[in-house]
C-alpha cells in the first residue's frame, strides 16, 4: 500500500499520531506537499464525508477523522504556505446575531476544511455587518450563517439584504442552515443556498463557489 493511501486510511481511522508520522515520511520521501494534502488527507476526509452522508458513521467519528487530518496539516502547513497551494475557495462562517449555538456551524467548518476550503470562522452572535465586512476583507465567495433559535433565525435576512445593498450579490453567495430552518424559509429570505445538515452543506457550498 502506498504512503498516500496509508495516510488516507489513518485519517479515516482517526489516528492523529499515525497521520502525522506518515505525512512527515511522505515529505521526507520527496512527495510534494500538495499531493500529500490532496491524495492523502483530503482523500481520507472525502471518504469520511461520504460515509457520514450515507449515515454509515456519525459526527463523533467525523470529528476524530478531522482531528487526524489536522495533525497531518500541521506537518504540511509550512511547505504548503511557501508553495502557495490554491484552496477550493474561501468561506466566512458564523452564528447569527443573538444566537450562541455553534456546534452545527463548527461541524460545517470542519467538513469544509476537510474538503479543501479555507474557512474563516467568526464565532457566535455575529452582527450582519461583520459577516459582510469579513467576506469582503478576505475575498470570500460564500457566507455561511447558522441559527438554532426560531427567534434569531430571522436575523439571517439582514445579512442577505446587506449583501444586496452593497452590490455584492454577484460575487458573494449566502448559505443558511440550522435545526429549525427550512428550505422554504431560506428561499423566503432570499438566501442563495440552504443546507439541511453539515454533510449536505459541503456539496451546496461547492455549487455556490462554482456560481460565484
Amino acid at each position: 500500500m502506498d504512503l498516500l493511501t496509508r495516510i488516507a486510511n489513518e485519517v479515516r481511522a482517526g489516528e492523529p499520531d499515525a497521520v502525522r508520522a506518515l505525512a512527515a515520511e511522505a515529505l521526507a520521501a520527496g512527495v510534494a506537499p500538495a499531493e500529500v494534502l490532496r491524495g492523502g488527507l483530503i482523500a481520507g476526509m472525502t471518504v469520511v464525508g461520504d460515509a457520514f452522508r450515507l449515515r454509515e458513521i456519525f459526527l463523533p467519528d467525523v470529528l476524530l477523522a478531522a482531528r487526524a487530518m489536522q495533525s497531518g496539516l500541521e506537518v504540511l502547513r509550512p511547505q504548503l504556505a511557501a508553495g502557495g497551494v490554491p484552496t477550493a475557495g474561501r468561506v466566512v462562517l458564523g452564528t447569527v446575531r443573538g444566537d450562541l449555538h455553534d456546534i452545527g456551524k463548527n461541524l460545517v467548518g470542519i467538513l469544509l476544511g476537510g474538503a479543501g476550503f479555507d474557512v474563516i470562522d467568526l464565532g457566535v452572535d455575529v452582527p450582519p455587518e461583520r459577516f459582510v465586512d469579513s467576506a469582503v476583507e478576505h475575498g470570500a465567495a460564500v457566507i455561511g450563517i447558522s441559527a438554532l433559535l426560531t427567534t434569531t433565525m430571522v436575523g439571517m435576512r439582514e445579512v442577505v439584504a446587506l449583501v444586496r445593498e452593497r452590490g455584492l450579490a454577484d460575487r458573494i453567495k449566502v448559505i443558511v442552515g440550522g435545526a429549525p430552518l427550512t428550505e422554504a424559509f431560506a428561499r423566503e429570505i432570499g438566501a442563495d443556498g440552504y443546507a439541511y445538515d453539515a454533510a449536505s452543506a459541503v456539496g451546496r457550498v461547492k455549487q455556490l463557489v462554482g456560481a460565484a
Binding site: G14, R55, I57, F58, L59, P60, D61, L64
Partner: peptide, 14 residues
C-alpha cells in the same frame, strides 16, 4: 444530541 440516532450502537471510540 451528538448526532447518533436512537438504536444505533456507537463505535468503541465514540
Amino acid at each position: 444530541r451528538a448526532g447518533i440516532p436512537a438504536g444505533i450502537e456507537p463505535s468503541a471510540r465514540t
